[in-house]
Design a binder for these strands. Structure first.
Lengths: 184, 184, 184, 184
DNA sequence: TATGAATGAGCATTCATTCAT
DNA sequence: AATGAATGAATGCTCATTCAT
C-alpha cells in the first residue's frame, strides 16, 4: 500500500478511536508506523488529512451507489441493504459525528460536508428519476430529504446507543421509510 | 446566583460560541468574572463541567415538557412549537452537536445522554398514552422514535447548513411528522 | 526583580550568547529559571521580546545621553568616554549585529531599528545645536552621519575582531572623529 | 559548471533572497536543480556551504582589485567606482550583514572574515604604497582603516534603510572620504 | 553518482491544572 | 474563599541530515 493511503488509513483509525480533536499527528504517525515528519510529505497539514478523509467517505458512498445494481422494486425495502454504503457507514459513524460537529465551526469543513451532501443528494435524485420517471421531482426531493434526516438521526442514535445498527433499529427504520414512501 | 450556576452558565455561553474543544477554562473564567483557579473549587476538571452542562440541558428539556400545557389537538401540528424545548434547541444545537460527538467516545457522557434519552422517551410516551388511551403503546413508541430520529437529523442538518431552523425547514418537518402521524 | 525584567535580561543573555535565531524560548526560560509557558504571560510572542530588547537598548542610549553632563569642550575628544552608552555598546554589539541583520528581512524589526536610529539622531542633533548655536544644521547632520557610519563600522569590526574595543581601536577612532570635526 | 560551483551559486541566490537562516537546504537544492541529498556529497553540512560562500565573496573582492586598473588619480574620487567590488557589494549586502552577524558567534566564520579582512588590507596598502611611495605607511593604514569603517557603516545603513546605495548616500560618502584623504 | 523518501530532534505556542498567597 | 502566577506536557509543524535504492 502506498504511503498516502497508509497514512490516511492510520488517520481514519486514530480519529475513529480518539476522535477528531484528540487524534494528534504523532498518534497518526505511530499508528502508520511512520515518522511524524513524513506525514507532511504527503499532506499539507492536519486539516487536509481530514479533507481527504471526508472526500474518501463521500467517494466511497458514491461508488457504492454506482456499482451495485438497484434492488428489485418488488422486494421488501431494506435501505441498509439497498444503499450498500451502510456497510461502511457503521465504520464511518464516529468520524461523521465529529466532522459534522467540527463543520459547525470550521467553514472549510462545512463547505466540504455540504458539498458532499449535495453531491450525494443530486446523485440519488437522478437515480430515482430514472426509476420513477412519472414521479414529480419535488416529491422525490422531499422523500429523499426525509430519508436523509432519518439517516442522520440514525447516525446520531448509533453514536448514542453503542455504535451498532442492530436488527431492531434496522427493521424499524425500514418500516418507517417503507410507509413514508407508500404514503405518498 | 451561586458560583456553581454562574460558572456553568459561562461555560455554556463559551461553548456555544467557540465550541466544545475551543472553549478554554480561561475563557469560561473570564466570562464568569471569576478567576481560573476558582473553577476547580467547583468542578473537578473540564470534563465534569461538560458533564454538568449535559445534565442541565437534559433537565431543561424535561422541565419544559412538564411545565407547559400540551397543545390543542385540533391546531395544525407544529413540533417546533409543540415540543417547547425547541425554543432552546436552537441555542443548544452547537452544543448538542459537540456533545453527541463527544458522547461517542466518552462513556460518561454517553451514559448521561442515553439515560436522558430514555427518560424523555418514557415521559413522552406516558403523556401520549394519557391523550390517546386507545392507542397501542408500541405504535406510540415507534412514532416517538421516528420523531426523535427526525429531530436528531434536523440538528445535524442545522449544523451542516447554517445553524438556523428556517421556515422552509420548519414547514417541511412539520408536514412530514403530520403525515407520519396520520398515516398510522 | 520583576518577572518581566527577569525574562528580558535572560533573553538578552541568551541572544548575546547564541544569537538571535538560535536563542530558543526554552533557552531563555531556562536562563531565567522560569518555565517556558510563563514567558507567554509576559510577552505575546518571541518577536515582542526582541522588540522590547531593542527598545531597551535605545532607551538606554537615550538616557545615557540625557543623564550625563557633556564633556568639557577643551578636553581631547574621546567619543567612547563622551557618549557613555559606549560602556553598554560593547555588550550590545552582538545583539545589534543580529538585529541589524534580521532587520534586513523583517519589516517589523526594520521599522524598530530605523525609528530608534532616527530618534537617536534627532536627539544628538538637538544637543549639538545647543552647544554650537552658530553652526549650520546641515553640517551638524552630516557630521553626525559620518560619526554614525564610523560607529556602525566599529560595531562590525568589533564583531569581527574579537568583541573588544581595545585601546588601539579607541584611539584611532578618536583621532579620526577629531580630525573630522575640526576639518569642517 | 561543476556541481560544487552550481550549488554554491544556488546557495548564494537563496541566501540573498531569503537570508542566512531562512534559506533551507531544500531551497538551495531546488534552486540548483539538484536533489537535496546530493548537496551532502559536496558539502559536509549547511555551515560549510556558508563557509565556502564567504570564501567566495572574499576571493571575488580580491580578484576584482587585482584585475582592474586603478582609477586616474586626477578624476574626482568615487569609492564606489574605484573599489570595483562595490558593484557586487550591492548584491552582497544582504549576505554580508548575515555573515558579519554570524561571524560574531561562529569562530570558523570569524577566522575566515578576519583573514580576508587582513588580506584585503595588506593588498590595498601595498597598492597605495606603489602609488604614493612618499607617504608614511601608518598614514596609509589609518586612512584605509577609516575607509573600511565607513564601508562597513554603509553596509549596515543600507540594511537599515532599504537596501539601496542611492546617489545621496553615494555622494555623501565620497565627499567624506575625499575630505578625509586630503585632510591628511 | 544521484535521488528523494524518511527520520527525529527541535521550535513556538497553548492550556488544563496546581498552589502559594 | 479566591486569586492568578506558574508549570510542563502536548501540539502542529519544519528542516538538516541520512540512507536504501
Amino acid at each position: 500500500m502506498n504511503r498516502h493511503e497508509l497514512i490516511l488509513r492510520a488517520a481514519r483509525t486514530c480519529m475513529i478511536e480518539k476522535g477528531f480533536h484528540n487524534a494528534s499527528i504523532k498518534n497518526i504517525a505511530a499508528c502508520a508506523n511512520v515518522s511524524a515528519g513524513l506525514i507532511y510529505r504527503y499532506f499539507e497539514n492536519k486539516d487536509s488529512i481530514i479533507e481527504a478523509l471526508v472526500s474518501d467517505i463521500v467517494n466511497n458512498m458514491k461508488s457504492h451507489m454506482d456499482d451495485k445494481p438497484r434492488r428489485d422494486e418488488n422486494q421488501p425495502l431494506d435501505i441498509f441493504q439497498t444503499s450498500d454504503f451502510f456497510a461502511d457507514l457503521q465504520d464511518n459513524i464516529f468520524m461523521l459525528m465529529d466532522i459534522a460537529s467540527a463543520a459547525t465551526r470550521n467553514p472549510r469543513y462545512k463547505k466540504l460536508v455540504v458539498q458532499a451532501h449535495n453531491a450525494l443528494q443530486d446523485d440519488i435524485v437522478r437515480r430515482e428519476k430514472q426509476q420513477h420517471p412519472e414521479m414529480d421531482e419535488s416529491i422525490i426531493r422531499t422523500r429523499h430529504y426525509v430519508i436523509t434526516l432519518l439517516l442522520d438521526g440514525v447516525i446520531v442514535q448509533c453514536g448514542r446507543k453503542g455504535y451498532v445498527i442492530d436488527d431492531e433499529l434496522r427493521q424499524m427504520i425500514n418500516a418507517i421509510v417503507h410507509k413514508l414512501i407508500h404514503a405518498k
